[in-house]
Design a protein around this nucleic acid. Structure first.
Lengths: 144, 144
DNA sequence: TGTCTAGTTTATAATGATTCTAAAAAGGTG
DNA sequence: CACCTTTTTAGAATCATTATAAACTAGACA
């Protein structure tokens, strides 16, 4: 079913647990998507379309588009992925769920990570009664 | 053609000039949209859909949907409107073109302006070769 | 004032991302 | 294995937005 070297086995056992623990059944499709998204050191940004291409390329197997959408939404809800707030016709997601910011290159339509140390501390002085801050995202738009 | 009190005349003369100066012909439709967007002290956020409703309500006259889209895009390109980077099925625009930031109330799905003085200075330390910063937008997501 | 031309508006069709549907398949419990 | 629930799936439906191409209009100039 999957490649059988030790690293892969470890990876799948880990993600089977992870999915179960968050109330998601560890289906073949979800584990394959985990493999594409998380079986790497590097974090990255992607659209659903990017992900579908990556799945096709990395795994010789088709997952239906609806499932990819469902899975990404489920992972986002569980906090395994973050949606990036940017105006684009497609929705962007980020495998880097830590608090961090982005450059957006308007010409290339590409997102670039800003490390937390690349941005000075952000001080939000205003408070709204009964609401608390969930996240603070900075988007720096770049032009030529 | 339009209401004829002095304030309105002043407003239209001003916007006829403004449009001409930026290379846009001051058509009836564009001037009506200016009236809805800019003939008020208050700035506000809107979607195309909001704007169409506002036009229907304030002006007893139909402007085709395509024209509303074209006009809003044109105004944005000329800097009379700002697009707000937020993930929503509809695109949001802001009549407040000054540098400022937003709260986004996740539950109510509502944008709230943050005055510049509500946010401390933001220091972007990273530089990208050949690119310059066009804008820095902070989006503060709120939960209950 | 009429004519001309490029820019604009318009209704409608087309596009494209995303969600919905409902039937088939699969996971997990006993 | 049997059962029930969740998940997957292909395809249809939806919704915002853009494209199209024909009719119209602003502004320039005679």
């Amino acid at each position: 079913m999957f490649r059988t070297n030790l690293d892969n086995i470890v990876f799948f056992v880990k993600y089977i647990e992870k999915l179960r623990n968050s109330g998601l059944r560890p289906t073949k499709q979800r584990l394959r998507i985990c493999q594409v998204l998380f079986n790497t050191q590097k974090t990255f940004h992607f659209t659903i379309n990017d992900l579908v291409k990556k799945i096709k390329k990395q795994i010789n197997n088709n997952i239906s588009l609806a499932t990819v959408y469902n899975t990404v939404r489920a992972f986002e809800k569980k906090g395994y992925l973050k949606q990036i707030s940017i105006n684009s016709s497609e929705t962007y997601f980020d495998t880097n769920i830590s608090n961090h910011h982005h450059f957006y290159d308007l010409k290339e339509e590409k997102l670039i990570d800003l490390k937390n140390s690349d941005v000075g501390p952000i001080n939000i002085k205003k408070k709204i009664n009964g609401k608390k801050i969930k996240s603070v995202e900075v988007l720096v738009k770049l032009e030529d």
